[in-house]
Design a protein around this nucleic acid. Structure first.
Length: 577
RNA sequence: GCUCCCGUAGCUCAACUGGACAGAGCAUGGGAUUUCUAAUCCCAAGGUCGCAGGUUCGAGUCCUGCCGGGAGCGCCA
């Protein structure tokens, strides 16, 4: 069953706006921030509002007088026991325990846990992961993939129609070097055994030679031109590179539980590029410069955007413009979101600006994240110092397995491996999702594979403990039915847990709106900590009947929230750990 | 030279986009288990939020300058 809820912040904020309008008729409050938000500290109540300060400024009154007027004349919204005025004019809302309990009861039987379907009827295209063909996926790809996938899951859960598109790098100058290298250096046996590894080796060899051999460089360029002109043999080779790469990528995506709705590489748009140029010219945007076709963006204080090279070839920008035009026409999305690393910020600014000039009104967002680097500096395929994604995941699973074997020696080995898989993968994903995407990341094994503290295993452990409590309850009280008993919030630890649980919908909305999965991760960790304190200090199975059922219900809602939240981050929750 | 990010406890990171005495984890020291999974919990210690000004009732958050780190800046993607 699914009930349509307004979130608590939405309800209280709306009430506040109406209250201010009623108490101060005639004042133009439309532009003022009157939002009610969760408090940072329980001593300030459950929710707080700073409206009095902004209203006071507008009306040239004292903030405390404004706050007092609101409290005196507007009363309290439903569910709020009292509103206190604190400090310079903060309004602190204290929710009634009874209202919290009734609300939790409704959430418990709601399939969406009270999260509104805010994206209903809207479409978003998510462009993420997008690895380059013929190169192995390495730890640098994990951020785009994991963050993009979390945004995918968040939006889908909120009711958006999501089209996840893997915009593969399957076209471009690297193919000249790759083809020439392949014909010269490739070892058929190695290629058969491990195509991507061999392609990578071949590419690096070819690239290195091009740096010192001008003829080699020219020959590579000739191969590229042949490919672009549709030469059958090069075309076939190119196709086989893509095929092998996709098979390899697919294996890793399955491992990460990542699914795409569309896999349209850059080459998909090849035949649309001349049309884009014509369009740019017709709009008077493009001009010749040193043989290339460029779009000047001086008014926007951006460097020019090159849309056709002097040799007649097209650029990244041209493909991206064609892609947006195509997406807008075919899918009519409300938004197109790109998840890439920080180095592409300028490119996206230029390209979005050009799209606007072409009359594209679709919301375009570039969600960039800090480049992953090694303690000794950046890494690249060419340098050969990459850490493959497979190796990272293998290492994660084997570290987790050691831990599982140690703490659950009686578990059957097959189950130990399955738990280790969930825990190891969860740890890797969580390491990326729990911090601000834009922060700079230096890769270290211990950080990426942390299994304690603020980590996925901590959350998974909390979840597994609840599953165990529920089993024990059924064992000892086979005729008991928690849902038949009301939730009671007498103990402060129960109340604290209840308040935290009911924040979930607002957190999910915010994490999606800000494109910041770490805000959800933060919340889940906080929730798990609150639960662990509750678990440690409040008995449930030994509590008297009634209280016992109420607490088991709190456990159940916590489990559902953890599972739902972790699932939104792409992290699994085994029942045993 | 110009543009964009970042600088918070010994270490790794938060801080709901301008709100209350800046919070966690790790590491350190102390404590809790005959009882629901100790991969846990409780307590302690740890800070001039890079520096200097400014705006504001209020600044880690906004503005200016400087210092330090990263990234980008016409035919790569």
């Amino acid at each position: 069953m699914s009930i349509s809820f307004e979130t608590i912040e939405q309800t209280l904020s709306l009430w506040m706006r109406q209250a201010c309008a009623a108490v101060f008729p005639g004042a133009d409050l439309a532009a003022l921030p009157l939002n009610v938000v969760a408090t940072t500290d329980a001593s300030f109540g459950d929710y707080q509002c700073n409206a009095a300060m902004s209203v006071a400024k507008l009306l040239k009154m004292k903030p405390r007088d404004v706050a007092q007027a609101i409290v005196d004349r507007a009363g309290c919204p439903v569910g709020v026991e009292r509103i206190e005025i604190a400090g310079p004019g903060f309004l602190n809302f204290h929710l009634s325990a009874d209202w919290l309990a009734r609300r939790l009861e409704a959430v418990q039987t709601d399939a969406r846990l009270g999260v509104p379907a805010a994206g209903q009827g809207k479409t978003v295209i998510l462009d993420y992961s997008s690895p380059n063909v013929a190169k192995p996926m390495h730890i640098g790809h994990i951020r785009s993939t994991v963050i993009g996938n979390a945004l995918d899951r968040l939006h889908r859960f909120l009711g958006w129609r999501v089209l996840a598109d893997n915009h593969l790098g399957d076209w471009g100058t690297q193919f000249g070097l790759l083809m020439l290298g392949f014909r010269t250096f490739a070892d058929p046996t190695a290629y058969e055994a491990s195509p991507i590894e061999e392609l990578e080796r071949v590419y690096v060899a070819s690239y290195n030679r091009s740096k010192e051999d001008e003829n080699w460089k020219n020959a590579a360029r000739a191969e590229l031109v042949k490919l672009q002109q549709g030469d059958a043999e090069n075309r076939e080779l190119w196709r086989s590179f893509i095929e092998h790469s996709l098979r390899e990528f697919e294996r890793i995506y399955q491992r990460l539980n990542v699914k795409f709705d569309l896999v349209r590489g850059e080459s998909f748009y090849n035949d649309k590029l001349p049309g884009v140029i014509v369009m740019l010219q017709e709009n008077g945007l493009a001009e010749e410069s040193d043989g290339a076709l460029i779009i000047k963006l001086e008014a926007e204080k951006l460097t020019p955007c090159i849309v056709r090279k002097s040799d007649g070839g097209y650029n990244y920008a041209t493909t991206d413009i064609a892609t947006v035009l195509n997406r807008a026409e075919e899918f009519k999305p409300d938004a197109v979101i790109y998840v890439t690393d920080e180095r592409q910020q300028l490119h996206f600014k230029q390209f979005f600006t050009v799209c606007r000039k072409l009359g594209v009104t679709t919301r375009l967002e570039h969600i960039w994240f800090g480049l992953m680097r090694l303690p000794e500096g950046t890494f690249s395929t060419r340098e050969g110092n990459v850490i493959k994604l497979d190796r990272l995941l293998d290492e994660a699973e084997s570290r987790a397995l050691a831990l599982v074997q140690q703490s659950s020696p009686d578990m059957p080995p097959a189950q130990q491996r399955e738990v280790a898989r969930c825990v190891g993968l969860g740890a890797v994903k969580y390491a990326d999702l729990s911090q601000n995407p834009q922060s700079l990341v230096t890769f270290t094994w211990d950080k990426a594979l942390a299994l304690d503290g603020n980590s996925a295993p901590y959350l998974q452990y909390a979840y597994a403990r609840i599953a165990s409590v529920q089993d024990k309850y059924r064992e000892r009280f086979p005729v008991g039915d928690p849902l038949a008993q009301p939730i009671q919030l007498a103990d402060p630890l129960e109340r604290a847990l209840a308040v935290k649980l009911l924040r979930f919908p607002d957190i999910v909305l915010r994490a999606a709106a800000n494109f910041r999965p770490n805000q959800l991760a933060d919340y889940l960790f906080d929730l798990a900590q609150t639960y662990s304190t509750f678990y440690q200090n409040v008995p449930f199975l030994k509590a008297e009947a009634g209280v016992r059922e109420s607490r088991v219900r709190l456990c159940d809602i916590t489990a559902k929230t953890l599972r739902c939240g972790l699932n939104l981050l792409g992290i699994e929750t085994p029942d045993r750990i």
